[in-house]
Protein backbone atom coordinates (compact mmCIF):
# COMPACT_ATOMS: atom_id res chain seq x y z
CA UNK A 1 0.00 0.00 0.00
CA UNK A 2 1.37 3.39 -0.95
CA UNK A 3 1.02 6.11 1.62
CA UNK A 4 -0.30 8.89 -0.58
CA UNK A 5 -2.88 11.60 0.02
CA UNK A 6 -5.56 9.05 -0.82
CA UNK A 7 -4.43 6.76 2.00
CA UNK A 8 -4.38 9.71 4.37
CA UNK A 9 -7.88 10.68 3.32
CA UNK A 10 -9.15 7.14 3.81
CA UNK A 11 -7.63 6.92 7.29
CA UNK A 12 -9.09 10.30 8.22
CA UNK A 13 -12.44 9.15 6.92
CA UNK A 14 -12.27 6.05 9.11
CA UNK A 15 -11.35 8.22 12.10
CA UNK A 16 -14.40 10.46 11.61
CA UNK A 17 -16.55 7.37 11.02
CA UNK A 18 -15.49 6.00 14.38
CA UNK A 19 -15.43 9.31 16.28
CA UNK A 20 -18.88 8.98 17.90
CA UNK A 21 -18.38 5.37 18.93
CA UNK A 22 -15.00 6.13 20.41
CA UNK A 23 -16.52 8.83 22.61
CA UNK A 24 -19.01 6.36 24.00
CA UNK A 25 -16.76 4.46 26.44
CA UNK A 26 -15.05 7.71 27.42
CA UNK A 27 -18.27 9.12 28.81
CA UNK A 28 -19.48 5.78 30.07
CA UNK A 29 -16.56 5.61 32.48
CA UNK A 30 -16.47 9.37 33.17
CA UNK A 31 -17.23 10.35 36.72
CA UNK A 32 -19.43 13.29 35.85
CA UNK A 33 -23.14 13.74 35.33
CA UNK A 34 -22.75 16.05 32.33
CA UNK A 35 -21.87 14.58 28.94
CA UNK A 36 -19.20 17.13 28.04
CA UNK A 37 -15.50 17.80 28.28
CA UNK A 38 -13.40 18.17 30.38
CA UNK A 39 -13.50 14.67 31.85
CA UNK A 40 -13.68 14.19 35.58
CA UNK A 41 -12.34 10.80 36.58
CA UNK A 42 -12.92 7.08 36.25
CA UNK A 43 -16.04 5.31 37.53
CA UNK A 44 -18.03 2.19 36.87
CA UNK A 45 -21.01 3.65 38.70
CA UNK A 46 -23.09 4.01 35.53
CA UNK A 47 -22.76 0.36 34.70
CA UNK A 48 -23.89 -0.49 38.22
CA UNK A 49 -26.90 1.72 37.73
CA UNK A 50 -27.91 -0.36 34.72
CA UNK A 51 -28.36 -3.38 36.97
CA UNK A 52 -30.72 -1.46 39.25
CA UNK A 53 -33.18 -0.32 36.60
CA UNK A 54 -36.06 -2.81 36.23
CA UNK A 55 -37.66 -0.91 33.33
CA UNK A 56 -34.44 -1.38 31.40
CA UNK A 57 -34.46 -5.09 32.08
CA UNK A 58 -38.02 -5.37 30.84
CA UNK A 59 -37.12 -3.45 27.66
CA UNK A 60 -34.09 -5.66 27.12
CA UNK A 61 -36.19 -8.80 27.44
CA UNK A 62 -38.68 -7.40 24.94
CA UNK A 63 -35.96 -6.51 22.50
CA UNK A 64 -34.36 -9.94 22.75
CA UNK A 65 -37.65 -11.75 22.17
CA UNK A 66 -38.34 -9.54 19.17
CA UNK A 67 -34.83 -9.79 17.74
CA UNK A 68 -34.70 -13.58 17.96
CA UNK A 69 -38.13 -13.96 16.35
CA UNK A 70 -37.23 -11.51 13.60
CA UNK A 71 -33.92 -13.22 12.90
CA UNK A 72 -35.59 -16.61 12.45
CA UNK A 73 -38.58 -15.33 10.50
CA UNK A 74 -36.65 -13.03 8.16
CA UNK A 75 -33.97 -15.66 7.47
CA UNK A 76 -36.59 -18.29 6.61
CA UNK A 77 -38.37 -15.94 4.23
CA UNK A 78 -35.03 -14.72 2.89
CA UNK A 79 -34.04 -18.32 2.11
CA UNK A 80 -37.05 -18.73 -0.17
CA UNK A 81 -36.43 -15.46 -1.97
CA UNK A 82 -32.66 -15.97 -2.32
CA UNK A 83 -33.15 -19.45 -3.71
CA UNK A 84 -35.80 -18.27 -6.15
CA UNK A 85 -33.53 -15.41 -7.21
CA UNK A 86 -30.48 -17.57 -7.88
CA UNK A 87 -32.04 -20.79 -9.18
CA UNK A 88 -35.12 -19.97 -11.19
CA UNK A 89 -36.29 -17.79 -14.02
CA UNK A 90 -39.90 -16.79 -13.56
CA UNK A 91 -42.27 -14.14 -14.88
CA UNK A 92 -41.80 -10.62 -13.49
CA UNK A 93 -38.73 -11.80 -11.55
CA UNK A 94 -36.97 -8.42 -11.45
CA UNK A 95 -40.14 -6.63 -10.39
CA UNK A 96 -41.02 -9.11 -7.67
CA UNK A 97 -37.54 -9.11 -6.19
CA UNK A 98 -37.25 -5.32 -6.38
CA UNK A 99 -40.54 -5.07 -4.52
CA UNK A 100 -39.36 -7.43 -1.77
CA UNK A 101 -36.12 -5.41 -1.50
CA UNK A 102 -38.02 -2.10 -1.37
CA UNK A 103 -37.82 -1.65 2.46
CA UNK A 104 -34.07 -1.26 1.98
CA UNK A 105 -34.55 2.22 0.50
CA UNK A 106 -37.97 3.20 1.80
CA UNK A 107 -37.74 5.63 4.76
CA UNK A 108 -38.61 3.69 7.89
CA UNK A 109 -41.11 6.39 8.84
CA UNK A 110 -43.21 5.52 5.81
CA UNK A 111 -43.17 1.78 6.63
CA UNK A 112 -43.93 2.54 10.26
CA UNK A 113 -46.88 4.86 9.74
CA UNK A 114 -48.45 2.68 7.08
CA UNK A 115 -48.30 -0.32 9.41
CA UNK A 116 -49.60 1.81 12.27
CA UNK A 117 -52.54 3.12 10.26
CA UNK A 118 -53.49 -0.41 9.23
CA UNK A 119 -53.28 -1.61 12.82
CA UNK A 120 -55.42 1.25 14.07
CA UNK A 121 -57.89 0.73 11.26
CA UNK A 122 -58.23 -2.95 12.04
CA UNK A 123 -58.66 -2.06 15.71
CA UNK A 124 -55.72 -4.25 16.73
CA UNK A 125 -53.49 -3.49 19.67
CA UNK A 126 -49.88 -2.99 18.81
CA UNK A 127 -47.30 -4.94 20.75
CA UNK A 128 -44.27 -7.10 20.33
CA UNK A 129 -45.92 -9.06 17.52
CA UNK A 130 -46.48 -5.96 15.41
CA UNK A 131 -42.87 -4.88 15.91
CA UNK A 132 -41.76 -8.37 14.90
CA UNK A 133 -43.87 -8.11 11.75
CA UNK A 134 -42.41 -4.70 10.87
CA UNK A 135 -38.81 -5.64 11.62
CA UNK A 136 -39.11 -8.82 9.59
CA UNK A 137 -40.20 -6.75 6.61
CA UNK A 138 -37.13 -4.58 7.11
CA UNK A 139 -34.70 -7.48 7.59
CA UNK A 140 -35.78 -9.67 4.66
CA UNK A 141 -33.78 -7.59 2.13
CA UNK A 142 -30.61 -7.90 4.20
CA UNK A 143 -31.16 -11.63 4.61
CA UNK A 144 -31.68 -11.99 0.86
CA UNK A 145 -28.52 -10.04 0.09
CA UNK A 146 -26.43 -12.32 2.31
CA UNK A 147 -28.06 -15.60 1.29
CA UNK A 148 -28.02 -14.73 -2.40
CA UNK A 149 -24.26 -14.59 -2.11
CA UNK A 150 -24.18 -18.04 -0.52
CA UNK A 151 -26.48 -19.55 -3.12
CA UNK A 152 -24.77 -18.05 -6.13
CA UNK A 153 -21.39 -19.20 -4.82
CA UNK A 154 -22.73 -22.72 -4.91
CA UNK A 155 -22.41 -24.60 -8.19
CA UNK A 156 -25.93 -25.57 -9.22
CA UNK A 157 -24.75 -28.95 -10.51
CA UNK A 158 -23.86 -29.96 -6.92
CA UNK A 159 -27.55 -30.39 -6.16
CA UNK A 160 -28.12 -32.19 -9.45
CA UNK A 161 -25.17 -34.44 -8.69
CA UNK A 162 -26.70 -35.45 -5.35
CA UNK A 163 -30.02 -36.24 -7.03
CA UNK A 164 -28.21 -38.12 -9.77
CA UNK A 165 -26.50 -40.19 -7.07
CA UNK A 166 -29.87 -41.26 -5.72
CA UNK A 167 -30.87 -38.64 -3.15
CA UNK A 168 -34.35 -37.13 -3.09
CA UNK A 169 -34.79 -33.35 -3.40
CA UNK A 170 -35.39 -33.18 0.35
CA UNK A 171 -32.34 -35.20 1.38
CA UNK A 172 -30.29 -33.24 -1.16
CA UNK A 173 -31.29 -30.06 0.63
CA UNK A 174 -30.22 -31.57 3.94
CA UNK A 175 -26.97 -33.19 2.77
CA UNK A 176 -25.67 -30.69 0.24
CA UNK A 177 -27.51 -27.37 0.15
CA UNK A 178 -27.83 -26.77 3.87
CA UNK A 179 -24.19 -27.48 4.80
CA UNK A 180 -22.97 -25.21 2.01
CA UNK A 181 -25.41 -22.39 2.76
CA UNK A 182 -25.19 -22.79 6.56
CA UNK A 183 -22.56 -20.07 7.06
CA UNK A 184 -24.77 -17.66 5.12
CA UNK A 185 -27.75 -18.64 7.25
CA UNK A 186 -25.82 -17.99 10.46
CA UNK A 187 -24.60 -14.65 9.11
CA UNK A 188 -28.16 -13.73 8.12
CA UNK A 189 -29.52 -14.66 11.57
CA UNK A 190 -26.89 -12.54 13.29
CA UNK A 191 -27.35 -9.53 11.02
CA UNK A 192 -31.14 -9.61 11.30
CA UNK A 193 -30.81 -9.95 15.08
CA UNK A 194 -28.51 -6.91 15.17
CA UNK A 195 -30.77 -4.80 12.95
CA UNK A 196 -33.86 -5.63 14.99
CA UNK A 197 -32.08 -4.96 18.27
CA UNK A 198 -31.07 -1.50 17.02
CA UNK A 199 -34.18 -0.49 15.12
CA UNK A 200 -35.95 2.48 16.58
CA UNK A 201 -38.56 4.05 14.31
CA UNK A 202 -40.82 1.06 13.72
CA UNK A 203 -40.54 0.03 17.36
CA UNK A 204 -41.30 3.63 18.40
CA UNK A 205 -44.45 3.80 16.26
CA UNK A 206 -45.69 0.31 16.96
CA UNK A 207 -44.72 -0.44 20.53
CA UNK A 208 -47.67 -0.39 22.84
CA UNK A 209 -46.92 0.07 26.50
CA UNK A 210 -43.91 -2.29 26.45
CA UNK A 211 -40.96 -0.38 24.97
CA UNK A 212 -38.01 -2.02 23.29
CA UNK A 213 -34.46 -1.13 24.24
CA UNK A 214 -34.03 1.72 21.71
CA UNK A 215 -37.46 3.11 22.59
CA UNK A 216 -36.51 3.03 26.25
CA UNK A 217 -33.21 4.74 25.41
CA UNK A 218 -35.07 7.43 23.47
CA UNK A 219 -37.15 8.16 26.53
CA UNK A 220 -34.04 8.44 28.68
CA UNK A 221 -32.34 10.91 26.32
CA UNK A 222 -34.76 13.58 27.53
CA UNK A 223 -33.43 13.39 31.09
CA UNK A 224 -29.92 14.82 31.36
CA UNK A 225 -29.39 12.99 34.64
CA UNK A 226 -29.89 9.62 32.92
CA UNK A 227 -27.40 10.29 30.13
CA UNK A 228 -24.29 8.76 31.74
CA UNK A 229 -26.24 5.55 32.19
CA UNK A 230 -27.31 5.72 28.53
CA UNK A 231 -23.63 6.00 27.60
CA UNK A 232 -22.86 2.90 29.64
CA UNK A 233 -25.72 1.03 27.99
CA UNK A 234 -24.59 2.26 24.59
CA UNK A 235 -21.08 0.98 25.24
CA UNK A 236 -22.44 -2.46 26.03
CA UNK A 237 -24.63 -2.43 22.93
CA UNK A 238 -21.78 -1.34 20.67
CA UNK A 239 -19.46 -4.02 22.06
CA UNK A 240 -22.22 -6.59 21.62
CA UNK A 241 -22.97 -5.47 18.05
CA UNK A 242 -19.32 -5.60 17.07
CA UNK A 243 -18.94 -9.05 18.61
CA UNK A 244 -21.97 -10.32 16.67
CA UNK A 245 -20.68 -8.79 13.46
CA UNK A 246 -17.26 -10.32 13.85
CA UNK A 247 -18.89 -13.71 14.36
CA UNK A 248 -21.14 -13.17 11.34
CA UNK A 249 -18.18 -12.14 9.21
CA UNK A 250 -16.18 -15.16 10.36
CA UNK A 251 -19.02 -17.44 9.34
CA UNK A 252 -19.35 -15.76 6.00
CA UNK A 253 -15.64 -16.25 5.30
CA UNK A 254 -15.73 -19.84 6.48
CA UNK A 255 -18.58 -20.39 4.02
CA UNK A 256 -16.47 -18.99 1.21
CA UNK A 257 -13.54 -21.18 2.17
CA UNK A 258 -15.76 -24.20 2.36
CA UNK A 259 -17.03 -23.49 -1.11
CA UNK A 260 -13.39 -23.22 -2.17
CA UNK A 261 -13.79 -19.59 -3.23
CA UNK A 262 -11.78 -16.46 -2.73
CA UNK A 263 -13.09 -13.63 -0.64
CA UNK A 264 -14.39 -10.85 -2.84
CA UNK A 265 -15.92 -8.37 -0.45
CA UNK A 266 -17.92 -7.83 2.70
CA UNK A 267 -21.61 -7.92 3.43
CA UNK A 268 -24.14 -6.74 0.85
Amino acid sequence: MKAGPLTLFALLYLLVLYAPIMLLPIFAFNDGTVIAFPLRGFTTEWFGLLLETPALHQATRNSLVIAVSVAVLATCLGLFAARAATRYRFPAKTGILAFIMLPLVLPEVIVAISLLVVLMQLGLDSGNWSIIAGHTLLCIPFSIAILQGSFSNMDQSLEEAAIDLGETPLSTFRLVTLPLVAPGIVASLLICFTISLDEFIIAFFLSGNAPTLPVYLWGQLRFPARLPMVMALGTILVVLSIALLVIAETFRRRGLRRAGLKDSGGFL
Partner: peptide, 28 residues
Protein backbone atom coordinates in the same frame (compact mmCIF):
# COMPACT_ATOMS: atom_id res chain seq x y z
CA UNK B 1 -37.02 -38.85 -11.34
CA UNK B 2 -33.25 -38.57 -11.94
CA UNK B 3 -32.48 -40.25 -8.61
CA UNK B 4 -34.47 -43.31 -9.72
CA UNK B 5 -32.86 -43.75 -13.12
CA UNK B 6 -30.12 -46.32 -13.74
CA UNK B 7 -27.87 -43.56 -15.06
CA UNK B 8 -25.15 -41.46 -13.47
CA UNK B 9 -23.78 -38.22 -14.73
CA UNK B 10 -20.27 -36.76 -14.73
CA UNK B 11 -20.88 -33.02 -14.72
CA UNK B 12 -18.97 -30.54 -16.81
CA UNK B 13 -17.96 -28.73 -13.61
CA UNK B 14 -17.51 -32.15 -11.94
CA UNK B 15 -19.79 -30.97 -9.08
CA UNK B 16 -17.46 -32.25 -6.38
CA UNK B 17 -19.06 -31.49 -3.01
CA UNK B 18 -16.67 -28.93 -1.51
CA UNK B 19 -17.68 -29.63 2.10
CA UNK B 20 -16.81 -33.34 1.94
CA UNK B 21 -13.57 -35.31 1.65
CA UNK B 22 -12.66 -37.28 -1.44
CA UNK B 23 -13.89 -40.52 0.17
CA UNK B 24 -17.14 -38.94 1.29
CA UNK B 25 -17.66 -37.65 -2.24
CA UNK B 26 -17.05 -41.04 -3.80
CA UNK B 27 -19.25 -42.81 -1.24
CA UNK B 28 -22.02 -40.19 -1.46
Amino acid sequence: APNRRPTNLVFQSYAIFPHLTVSQNVGF
